[in-house]
Design a protein around this nucleic acid. Sequence first.
DNA 1: ATGCCTAAGCCCCTTAGA
Length: 261
Amino acid sequence: MKIASFNINGIKARLPRLKEWLAETRPTVACLQEIKTQDDGFPTSEFEELGYQAIWHGQKSFNGVAILVDGAKPVEMRRGLGIDGPKDGEGEQARYLEADVNGVRVVNLYLPNGNPHPGPKFDYKLAWMEILRARLQDILASEQPAVVVGDFNVIPHDRDVWSVKAMASDALMQPASRDAYFRILGDGWTDALATRNPRGGVWTYWDYQAGAWQRDHGFRIDHALLSPECADRLLAAGVDKDHRAREKASDHAPVWVELRD
DNA sequence: ATGCCTAAGCCCCTTAGA
């Protein structure tokens, strides 16, 4: 089975590109981030026409995650991590959705960006990562095959960014962000893209600004983590880079892993 | 030191993203 993750940056603005990507690459599971719509704005029928059934967790204007499965309904296992946003009284942001698909637990997340650093948004990011870690530990303890995908908003190593200097003060690569990421990996998760590309130089995001795509000024923040049971089944992992080059593209490219059945 | 672009809301300017 093929499990893909795509930060689409707005499901309404991206719908033609998104349908094109589903039709061309046919992932078994497609995890979407930043759908940027309320629950009732989700285009269910557009995906059903392509053979996909979905669950989603929306929110007005920002954030929002969805899980699409080819030919089956995802069995929802958890929605949200129970952590409030950084503003007083705003409640929980739509960043976390978890489902079972063909015996595999699939976690789809959109981790807080954390800029500017330092500040309350950065504190929120770190707090979110600690709660996430606890949840993922419970999943590991269950010893069921599991995959955690999404926009982690963490650049793990210097080899995962086009310019360390340009990004040095960014929340995405602060030591505290990286430490939190590696604490999660240390619990037993395998970073599939890193394993397959040990020398780095693989990007999943290119800014819209300053000609970043044309200059290949990108970095790797979208990840796929595998439980030990899934790491043994890894056949391939990659980035659908060509989809970043298209008209009205997202600023992220899709990432995917292929697991032996 | 800052803007560079894009999406969405309520809508021609602001907030947020990374």
